[in-house]
Each structure stands twice: as structure tokens, then as C-alpha cells.
């Protein structure tokens, strides 16, 4: 089967500084892939580039066989790419329900949108209690749920999550990861960026390790979990 995402020799920089120095990365349909690495490794830069918010210096991104060169960020959403950004990026001054509708902005199938909205409230019951509240009044964990639900409202075929556990209490982290597992079980292709390497590798099938802009290790998540290098660098063993 063809990969849903194929990244070849991707290079991204900010001005003169190379933040991503030629990485290769692929995701098969239905796969949950973890991208781990310490702070400043270039994980966020990679995800933003895949979403189209940053323009790569060179390299190739193919989504579902299509070259994304020249495809604007907003067009990638209707192709099926969704990013839950670092720091969640919920619209604080829009209500929870309005945030979810923003997630469906690129769609015009009104009935299906309503059905998906109902599905999100089942997946995240917290959100229905708060649906008319401004998103800015939610707790960090609730905002993360909202950001994930909002991304799912676009009916993505590739869901990218940037540090969903950041700044959350352990109980909330557990909840978020349960949901990621659940969404993955329904066959969604997921690219999960995490600093919490252990947690990420426990839910993922495969993983990549990034260090200062380059992929230094990759392989099956269980192998990475067991590898000495990963243990030393990221798992505090």
C-alpha cells in the first residue's frame, strides 16, 4: 500500500538558521508514528512545514501521492491534513461550539457536520457541558480536548499532534492519550510529536528520534523503547 505521507530530504530554516536539516519520514495509512526529541530538535518546525505554515528550503512532501509544493496551508486542510498546534491554538474568544465549527470550515456537508459535532461531544463529554462557554475559559486539558476535537471536525486523513501532553496534569495526560489510542484504533493515520518519549512510544507503532534538525534513529516503537541510546537520552534510564 502507498504511504499517506512521504517526506524526502526536507530542509527548513528561519532566515539563515537551518532548523530541519534534511529529514526523511513516512507514514503508512492507519499508522501511528511518534516523532520524539529534545527541546529545539526541530519537531514543531517539521509539523508546521507539513501543515504549510512554513515554506521548506528544499525537499519534497508527498501527501497521498500528491506533491504539496505550492499547496497553501488552507488548501491542505481540505486535502485531509490536520495539525493540532503546540500550545493548542484554540480561539479563546469563540465559544467551544464555534471552535468546533471552525474545524469544519473547509467542509460544506451541513448534515454530516452536525453529525460529527454530535460525535465529538460523545468522544469528549466535557465539551458538551461547556459548548456555549468561551474557549478561553476552559482549563488546559479541556482546551487540548477542544483542539483535538476541532482538528477531527475537518475529517482529516492525517492527524498531526504537537505535544498534546504539554503542561497538563497526569490524569489529563492519561485521558488525552486514551483518546489518541481510540482515534488511532478507528484507522486514523497519526503523527505524534512528544517530549514525553516513553508515553509516545508506548502508543505508537513506529518512531523517529530527532536531534538538532536531523533524524538520528528510527524504527519500531518497541525497539526504540528498548534501545540504549533512547533510554539514555530521553527516558532517563
Amino acid at each position: 500500500m502507498n504511504n499517506i505521507l512521504d517526506v524526502r530530504d526536507l530542509q527548513v530554516g528561519y532566515g539563515g538558521i537551518q532548523a530541519v536539516k534534511g529529514i526523511d519520514l513516512c507514514i503508512a495509512p492507519g499508522e501511528l508514528v511518534a516523532l520524539i526529541g529534545s527541546n529545539g530538535a526541530g519537531k514543531t518546525t517539521t509539523l508546521k512545514t507539513l501543515a504549510g505554515l512554513l515554506v521548506p528550503g528544499s525537499g519534497q512532501i508527498c501527501f497521498d501521492g500528491q506533491n504539496l509544493h505550492k499547496v497553501a496551508a488552507h488548501q491542505r486542510v481540505s486535502m485531509g491534513i490536520a495539525l493540532v498546534p503546540e500550545g493548542r491554538g484554540v480561539f479563546a474568544r469563540l465559544s467551544v461550539a464555534e471552535n468546533l465549527l471552525m474545524g469544519a470550515y473547509s467542509r460544506c456537508d451541513q448534515d454530516e457536520i452536525a453529525a460529527d459535532l454530535a460525535r465529538m461531544y460523545v468522544l469528549f463529554p466535557r465539551l458538551i457541558e461547556r459548548k456555549d462557554q468561551l474557549a478561553g475559559t476552559l482549563s488546559g486539558g479541556e482546551q487540548q480536548m477542544l483542539a483535538m476535537a476541532r482538528a477531527l471536525m475537518s475529517r482529516p486523513r492525517l492527524l498531526m499532534l504537537d505535544e498534546p501532553s504539554m503542561g497538563l496534569a497526569p490524569l489529563m495526560v492519561k485521558k488525552i492519550f486514551e483518546t489518541i489510542r481510540e482515534v488511532a484504533a478507528q484507522g486514523m493515520s497519526i503523527l505524534l510529536v512528544e517530549q514525553n518519549a516513553r508515553l509516545a512510544l508506548q502508543v505508537a507503532g513506529r518512531g523517529y528520534v530527532m536531534e538538532s534538525g536531523a533524524v538520528t534513529l528510527s524504527g519500531a516503537a518497541c525497539d526504540l523503547l528498548g534501545s540504549d541510546a533512547v533510554q539514555r537520552a530521553y527516558l532517563g534510564a
Partner: peptide, 23 residues
């Protein structure tokens, strides 16, 4: 829907793009 997009762009242009809004 347009008004929602306007408010979303006003608040966070990057996040609005991630929703598929042509800012």
C-alpha cells in the same frame, strides 16, 4: 460562517489557516 472566520483570523491567523481559512 464568514463572521466566525473573521473573528478567528483576528484572534490567531496561523490557527485560522489550520482550519482551512484563506486568511
Amino acid at each position: 460562517r464568514l463572521g466566525r472566520a473573521m473573528r478567528a483570523v483576528a484572534e490567531n491567523q496561523h490557527a485560522a489557516q489550520l482550519m482551512g481559512v484563506d486568511i
